[in-house]
């Protein structure tokens, strides 16, 4: 499973409150979460997400278990999230909603061309390849199905 897009660089310890604030959680309209993604970090960021690959530092997605955080990114059109490390609930949530997550340590420049291959376990930044921690075959299968719900239906 592969993906490619321009980098949106973020720092370390990006918490799920910053990804989608508590005041926007009480709705089933997913477009609300996409529209307000990262609003408290940088209100302009949501407009740059479609087709991008987020590149974050350590402990990406720490804090609340809110699944709206990963759904917001998926609905905003994020192709995948590369981070040096992930908070565990965010990581599991991302796989469950079909948002590719790639654990790798890469230097990030906004707009750099990021490509990744989940099966082979690598990330490329402007053509330079870095190793990524491989996902379990089941996680890749869930991602390929588009998330745990479609995967469940297909089993």
């Amino acid at each position: 499973m592969q993906g490619v897009g321009p980098a949106v660089c973020l720092g370390r310890d990006i918490d799920t409150d910053l990804i989608i604030a508590g005041r926007y959680l009480r709705t089933k309209d997913r477009s609300v979460w996409a529209e307000h993604a990262f609003e408290d970090l940088d209100p302009a960021l949501a407009g740059r997400l479609r087709g991008s690959v987020i590149v974050a530092g350590r402990n990406m997605g720490c804090g609340s278990s809110r699944e709206q955080a990963v759904v917001a990114l998926r609905e905003a059109g994020v192709v995948g999230v590369v981070a040096e490390s992930f908070a565990r609930i965010f990581f599991r949530n991302a796989v469950n909603v079909g948002l590719p997550v790639i654990e790798a340590s890469v230097a990030c420049t906004d707009g750099a061309r990021i490509a990744f291959d989940l099966d082979a376990g690598w990330v490329e930044v402007d053509g330079e390849r870095y190793p990524a921690r491989p996902l379990s075959p089941k996680m890749v299968a869930i991602l390929r199905a588009g998330g745990l719900a479609p995967y469940w239906r297909s089993c």
Partner: peptide
């Protein structure tokens, strides 16, 4: 528990951990 602070209940010597909503749905199922 579908809440990150489910770890609270480890105070009883239980294995208690937080999960997301889709994982919770799978537990329901």
């Amino acid at each position: 528990g579908a809440d990150s602070h489910t770890c609270t209940l480890g105070a009883f010597g239980a294995f208690a951990t937080g999960v997301g909503a889709t994982d919770m749905a799978a537990v329901w199922a």
